[in-house]
Computed example of a mutant assay.
Amino acid sequence: MRYRRNYVAGGTYFFTVNLLNRQSALLVEHIDVLRESVRWVKQQQPFYIDAWVVLPDHMHAVLTLPDDDHDYSNRWREIKKRFSKSLPKTELLTDSNRRKGERGIWQRRFWEHTICDERDFWHHVNYVHYNPMKHGLVNCVIDWPYSSFHRALELGIYQSSWCGEELMFES
């Protein structure tokens, strides 16, 4: 059976995007390149970042697309492509990478989940922000620099001491 992605115009989605080499720290080593790649794609094909965290070898995001748009796949393709093209070619390539003209930086696919309601939204936003602690990278969420947690803190959504407790907000 083949997996079919769920495309909903104006939808909100949770994503996990991984490097091919899960031992790599490429994403945080080149965080400015990644940020610029996201910024450029966001200008060309707008989306709203509800939550985002970048870890050494993968990233999670909760993104909302414009009401008339459902094309998150192309956004991820462009982010990955721009990031890859900005790096020197030092990675080892498999025969498959060479045949397909790939750099060998990213896993080909990404995980996506369509957010279905407010509870699901907050569950995934919290998961994104808690992830650096989950992976043992920090002892407190606030200590991870590559996270939208800091923006959410400024907006009063979290307290600086938040460490993964479930947060629920009624609209």
Rank of each mutant, 00 (worst) to 15 (best):
P88L: 05
K89N: 12
T90R: 14
T90W: 01
L92S: 11
D95F: 02
D95M: 05
D95A: 10
N97G: 07
R99Y: 05
K100D: 11
G101R: 05
E102C: 04
R103C: 04
G104E: 00
I105P: 01
I105M: 00
I105D: 01
W106V: 03
W106D: 01
R108C: 00
R108L: 06
R109L: 00
W111Q: 07
E112C: 07
E112L: 01
E112A: 11
H113S: 11
H113F: 06
T114N: 10
T114V: 12
I115V: 14
C116G: 10
D117R: 05
R119T: 12
D120H: 15
H124E: 07
V125I: 11
N126P: 01
Y127Q: 06
V128S: 03
H129E: 15
Y130L: 15
N131M: 03
P132M: 04
P132C: 03
K134F: 09
K134S: 04
K134T: 07
G136F: 01
G136R: 13
L137N: 01
V138L: 08
N139G: 15
N139C: 13
V141E: 00
I142Q: 12
D143C: 14
D143Q: 15
W144E: 08
P145R: 04
P145F: 12
Y146A: 07
S147E: 10
F149A: 00
H150R: 08
R151A: 12
A152L: 14
A152Q: 13
L153K: 09
L153D: 14
E154D: 14
E154G: 06
L155Y: 08
G156P: 09
